[in-house]
Design a binder for these strands. Structure first.
Lengths: 388, 388
DNA sequence: GTGAAAGCGCTAACAA
DNA sequence: TTGTTAGCGCTTTCAC
């Protein structure tokens, strides 16, 4: 729990001056004129510790103490609290941060908030952080490496106390930036090396290789033989891992990989739909499609429907991520739950642990967590009518 | 990074201090204190204007000027920039905010970031704000009125420069809080009254009454007569408006409303599935279902599929919001695009306009924008086989 | 227990 | 052009 952090004092917006939209004309010369210009403490403007101090007839130090529950004479407490309530005093969080060195904000950066897998991460991270008294700063990098690096670098501007980063791929520059990050960072994804040797940052990843393998094995086990594969960009970590899992399962199942059955494209519904058209044109005998994520699987399903192929009778379909989309499709999509929500939650907790570490020198060694994938079988991959 | 304390080029945070994760031992005598302990400027710690000033042999004012492009002698500029680069200096945004009164952060608060409709808003708002140099603070209120009010109140803590609020409903307390908001607020949703009289805040809304009406009219026009209605909570603005549209369209089409055809539940897929079971049990002759959002429509579709009703031959289905889910379902869902993305974009721009307003007294009057809904017809509502 | 005072790091008057 | 200085609003020693 965030100790007294986010304004927990006995405050309230009780009877303060009209808000930003209120008309209040205060000709104070202290600072600019307008409503929220922060005029001096004399009369107009936003109340500060000084305003309260004057009103309560105590020093600003006492105001601060009372507001932070640092004990004071009952009498003093009462007067300060009353003054604060009457003026609708709200402490300036920026000033507090400057003094305390903490902003009670953390950043979550991923490539695109439109992706359901990220949505569940955001959701969990926000919930955990909120409970701990932190606010969540969201940053979409549009899968731009420069932007990711910029986020890492901007950690030095003191805007947030830590970062959860979900990079689309890890480059040497990422490793460098991670090593010199000004604040604790937790990476959602695979980092190279093993803790003593790898980059000194905590991370949570899923075992998508195993996940992909499980899905493909399932397709094979249910009688499919000509299993197409619609993958995302091969130079991304997710793309690479899924390909690995696909090939491993194929091999284990005694099936020869066939380049004609494999397409590499973007992680979107449209790309999936297009990919399947190409695949079906080249190999009309496909009896299953394994897709690197649910969007691709949905796109594939649409093409199958559009071309009159029955799912799962003619062609089985399986996706990955088990997002809300998997249950939205028809038939409901078999998918691999890669634990996006759990990864988000875990990452958030790891970051909180770092944030709670005392400033005293020795820092705990980097942690690596792995969330195991879980195959979720739904109707889209039921055994074909005349299957094994 | 743990390996070589030697890898300190003329770059990076703390110029050789190693990042947050740097080990305890840094060969450099230049810095000694903890990573981000913020020691003085003398030797340890993070560089500040003073560190730069000393190194460049100028005053802190010159440093500030150069760094902000306020002109200085070429010679000075060079020295300062070089010193800053060598030390990997990054200005402390908090200190800057305290001085300038602006944080370059804005908040977006909605009930649940898991909802696709909000996702597209977040996405747009994020993009617009990012382009304008603002960071986005995300706040999920879990549809809790107290939390919404808290967000409004917390505007006074100076943490963000403005707020885009998408409340699930507007209570008198909301109006009160909106009126005294400490910073500009843009509401996504319907506000009571008309500008001179309503609350003094900008807002964007959609005309969901007309949208719902269009969807139902479309169902009627395509030959449906027993049109069920699966609505969200009736005490929410969306719920209320959709009910209004439904009834209006029914009346215009000469159909009598039938309580048995109407269910009120939560805005979720599961709720939609359950609702339809009830509806079909009570009225097996339903030939269309109008749902208050895509999640409900998807849930309804699943129940229809599960109970062997063909879509659209037996029953037509229409949803609202036209989220990514509408295209994910099968058959693709007819839906009403309520312009979530556009509302988000508009709200962001309205907020930026406010943020750009000079502090000079007269503030522009509140604006009210309306985004018109657009019916998107897809396969789920194709006319039934033997239809009109 | 309380007040005076010293900054946190930065920008902007105001002088020189 | 440059340096000195005064804060922004708050927390926190350090004396009393």
């Amino acid at each position: 729990m965030g100790e007294g952090a986010a304004g927990m004092g006995p405050r309230g917006v009780g009877g303060g001056a009209g808000g930003w939209s209120g008309g209040g004309a205060d000709g104070l010369s202290g600072r600019g004129a307008g409503r929220w210009s922060g005029a001096g403490a004399e009369r107009g403007g936003v109340p500060t510790v000084e305003t309260i101090a004057v009103r309560a007839g105590v020093s600003i130090a006492s105001v601060s103490r009372v507001l932070n529950g640092h004990g004071a004479r009952p009498d003093t407490v009462t007067r300060v609290e009353r003054a604060a309530a009457e003026l609708g005093y709200v402490p300036n969080a920026v000033a507090r941060s400057l003094k305390g060195g903490r902003t009670m904000q953390v950043t979550f950066a991923m490539s695109d908030i439109g992706n359901p897998a990220y949505v569940s991460m955001v959701r969990e991270i926000q919930a955990v952080m909120k409970a701990a008294g932190y606010r969540l700063l969201l940053h979409s990098t549009d899968a731009d490496v420069e932007d990711e690096l910029a986020v890492l670098r901007s950690l030095a501007d003191r805007t947030s106390d830590g970062l959860v980063l979900c990079p689309i791929r890890i480059t040497p520059r990422h490793l460098d930036a991670l090593a010199r990050a000004a604040r604790p960072v937790v990476v959602i994804g695979s980092l190279p090396g093993t803790p003593p040797h790898g980059p000194p940052v905590d991370s949570v990843r899923t075992d998508s290789v195993t996940g992909a393998e499980a899905a493909v094995r399932h397709l094979i086990d249910t009688g499919r033989r000509r299993i197409a594969f619609v993958n995302g960009p091969a130079d991304t970590v997710p793309g690479h891992n899924r390909a690995l899992g696909y090939h491993t399962a194929l091999e284990a199942g005694g099936l020869a990989p066939d380049p004609e059955l494999i397409t590499t494209t973007d992680f979107t519904v449209e790309a999936g739909a297009a990919a399947l058209h190409g695949l079906l044109d080249a190999r009309p005998d496909i009896d299953a499609v394994f897709c690197a994520n649910d969007q691709l699987a949905l796109g594939s399903s649409q093409t199958l429907h559009a071309r009159g192929r029955s799912i799962p009778d003619d062609v089985a379909v399986a996706g990955m991520d088990d997002t809300v989309l998997a249950r939205a499709g028809w038939p409901p999509l078999t998918s691999v739950d890669l634990g996006s929500a759990e990864r988000g939650r875990t990452a958030a907790h790891m970051l909180l642990d770092r944030l709670r570490e005392p400033t005293g020198i020795p820092r705990a060694p980097a942690r690596r967590e792995i969330v195991m994938p879980r195959l979720v079988v739904r109707a889209s991959s039921a055994p074909a009518a005349g299957a094994v």
